[in-house]
Deep mutational scan, measured.
Amino acid sequence: MIHRILNHSVDKKGHVHYLIKWRDLPYDQASWESEDVEIQDYDLFKQSYWNHR
């Protein structure tokens, strides 16, 4: 379960990846995930991330 999205990056092919802080895990366990991976409520977290940038 996502706690929040910390950052994003765009690779050379134009694909967006998000650095995800996972609920109940420390920050050093955050991981980069592609924008099209199937994660519960991912779209809501991405929308919230962009609304607050």
Rank of each mutant, 00 (worst) to 15 (best):
M1Q: 05
M1V: 14
M1D: 07
I2D: 05
I2H: 05
I2S: 04
I2Y: 01
H3A: 12
H3F: 08
H3D: 15
H3K: 06
H3P: 04
H3Q: 14
R4D: 07
R4C: 13
R4V: 08
I5N: 00
I5W: 03
I5A: 03
I5S: 02
I5K: 04
I5V: 02
L6Y: 04
L6I: 13
L6C: 08
N7T: 11
N7S: 12
N7H: 09
H8P: 02
H8K: 00
S9H: 13
S9L: 11
S9I: 13
S9E: 12
S9T: 13
S9V: 08
V10T: 12
V10P: 06
V10L: 08
V10A: 06
D11N: 10
D11R: 03
D11A: 05
D11K: 00
D11G: 05
D11P: 01
D11Y: 03
K12Q: 12
K12W: 11
K12S: 13
K12Y: 11
K12D: 12
K12E: 11
K13P: 02
K13R: 10
K13E: 13
K13G: 08
K13D: 15
K13M: 11
G14W: 04
H15E: 12
H15Y: 08
H15T: 14
V16H: 09
V16T: 13
V16K: 12
V16A: 06
V16Y: 14
V16Q: 06
V16G: 03
H17L: 09
H17V: 07
H17I: 13
H17F: 09
Y18R: 00
Y18A: 05
Y18P: 02
Y18W: 03
L19R: 00
L19Y: 09
I20A: 00
I20C: 05
K21N: 06
K21Q: 12
K21I: 06
K21P: 02
K21F: 06
K21L: 10
K21R: 07
K21S: 08
K21V: 07
K21A: 14
W22V: 06
R23A: 10
R23T: 11
R23S: 10
R23H: 11
R23I: 11
D24L: 06
D24R: 07
D24F: 07
D24I: 04
D24N: 13
D24Y: 06
D24V: 06
D24Q: 07
L25S: 12
L25V: 10
L25C: 11
L25R: 14
P26A: 04
P26I: 01
P26E: 06
P26L: 05
P26F: 04
P26Q: 05
Y27C: 11
Y27I: 15
Y27F: 12
Y27T: 15
Y27D: 15
D28Q: 08
D28S: 15
D28Y: 07
D28N: 13
D28V: 07
D28M: 05
D28H: 11
Q29K: 15
Q29V: 06
Q29H: 09
Q29N: 07
Q29D: 08
Q29L: 10
Q29P: 03
A30T: 05
A30F: 06
A30E: 04
S31D: 02
S31R: 05
S31F: 00
S31I: 04
S31H: 01
W32C: 03
W32L: 04
W32Y: 01
W32R: 04
W32G: 01
W32A: 00
E33N: 05
E33Y: 08
E33L: 11
E33W: 06
E33H: 09
E33F: 06
E33G: 03
E33Q: 11
E33P: 01
S34R: 13
S34I: 02
S34T: 08
S34Q: 12
S34A: 12
E35L: 02
E35P: 01
E35T: 07
E35F: 00
E35K: 02
D36M: 08
D36L: 08
D36Y: 10
V37T: 14
V37E: 13
V37L: 13
V37I: 10
V37F: 11
V37M: 15
E38V: 10
E38C: 11
E38P: 10
E38Q: 13
E38R: 08
E38D: 11
E38W: 09
E38G: 10
I39R: 03
I39F: 15
I39T: 04
Q40H: 12
Q40T: 13
Q40N: 08
D41W: 06
D41H: 07
D41M: 03
D41R: 01
D41C: 02
D41P: 01
D41I: 00
D41A: 07
D41G: 09
D41V: 02
Y42T: 05
Y42N: 15
D43C: 10
D43Q: 13
D43W: 10
D43K: 07
D43M: 09
D43Y: 10
L44A: 14
L44M: 15
L44R: 14
L44N: 12
F45A: 14
F45K: 08
F45E: 04
F45G: 02
K46T: 04
K46H: 01
K46E: 04
K46C: 00
K46D: 01
K46V: 09
Q47W: 07
Q47N: 15
Q47Y: 08
Q47V: 12
Q47A: 12
S48E: 14
S48T: 12
Y49R: 00
Y49D: 08
Y49S: 00
Y49F: 05
Y49Q: 00
W50N: 03
W50K: 06
W50S: 05
W50D: 00
W50Y: 06
W50L: 02
W50T: 04
W50E: 01
W50F: 01
W50C: 03
N51A: 14
N51W: 07
H52V: 14
R53E: 11
